[in-house]
């Protein structure tokens, strides 16, 4: 792991971004033992989830968040839906009132981490190489690299992808799925697994909905059909419209202790 110490963050200098290398194989917990009968065919009933290792790491992450009283939010969307812009606005709006930290995942580059640099907000960039999603072990490395003292809200920006992140629990307290008006109203119907697991759904870029012939009512209906459990926040991260309700939601999470 190469983690450079964070600078004060006010200058957003070259070294201000923490880099997390996920190429080392993660340590895996042991599995139940098989029946040692040499030479004889034996059937071992394993019955573990294929993502058992990930699930266990996610549980460990969740326990760590609970112990530190951190609320962790996993922000998921397709590429270009506006996760990073939303996080920039969110960090500005929550300001000094709530202490935030950010983990951001991309296949390559630390462009997003640089965009998210704010004084007093530690940011770690996880470059996944070829992996199309974050997993719990990557997040564990990310949080190990971040100075989390006093942090109340950890915002995790997942790799832009509406499919694969659905299968990987990161240990987050809330999974928030973001769709934008540039993507069409039927995204939840086309990619149900991610929406099924969402605690909240954000409809972003409402400022350009009309230009794009995007029908917000149709989109709301599609979201409610697949994710009836999720509150919907209609907003524009660019103009700031609707941002208040989203920030109130986050403040309430932090106050309640997730």
């Amino acid at each position: 792991m190469t983690s450079k110490p964070s600078t004060c963050g006010c200058g957003a200098s070259e070294d201000a971004v923490i880099h997390v290398d996920v190429s080392d194989p993660a340590e895996r917990p042991p599995l139940p033992p098989g029946d040692p009968l040499p030479g004889v065919e034996v059937r071992v009933d394993v019955n573990v989830r294929l993502l058992d290792a990930n699930d266990r790491q996610a549980a460990a992450n969740r326990a760590q968040f609970a112990a530190r009283r951190i609320c962790a939010v996993n922000l998921v969307s397709g590429p270009g839906a506006g996760k990073t812009t939303l996080l920039q606005r969110t960090l500005e709006a929550l300001g000094p009132e709530i202490r935030c930290a950010v983990l951001v995942g991309d296949l390559q580059t630390d462009h997003d981490a640089r965009r998210l640099q704010r004084p007093g907000v530690p940011v770690a960039q996880i470059t996944t190489g070829s992996a199309c999603h974050l997993d719990a072990a990557m997040v564990a490395r990310g949080i190990a690299a971040l100075p989390l003292e006093g942090v109340q809200l950890l915002l995790i920006e997942n790799v832009g992808n509406l499919v694969c992140p659905a299968s990987f629990d990161l240990g987050e307290n809330r999974r928030v799925v973001l769709v934008s008006c540039a993507e069409g109203e039927d995204k939840p119907l086309k990619y149900p697994p991610l929406f099924t697991s969402a605690h909240a759904v954000i409809m972003n870029k409402i400022d350009v909905a009309e230009v794009l012939d995007f029908d917000r009512a149709v989109s709301r209906e599609a979201i409610r059909r697949i994710a009836p459990q999720a509150p919907i926040f209609e907003l524009s991260a660019r103009t700031g419209a609707g941002l208040d309700a989203w920030c109130r939601y986050l403040r309430a999470l932090v106050e309640r202790g997730a």
């Binding site: 029946d35 071992v44 993502l51 058992d52 290792a53 997993d135 299968s167």
Partner: peptide, 18 residues
């Protein structure tokens, strides 16, 4: 990634079962 996780589990069972 899921197949990797599955194979790791299978080989672990094989190793434990000698």
């Amino acid at each position: 990634g899921i197949a990797e996780s599955a194979l790791r589990a299978v080989l672990e069972v094989a190793r434990k079962g000698k």
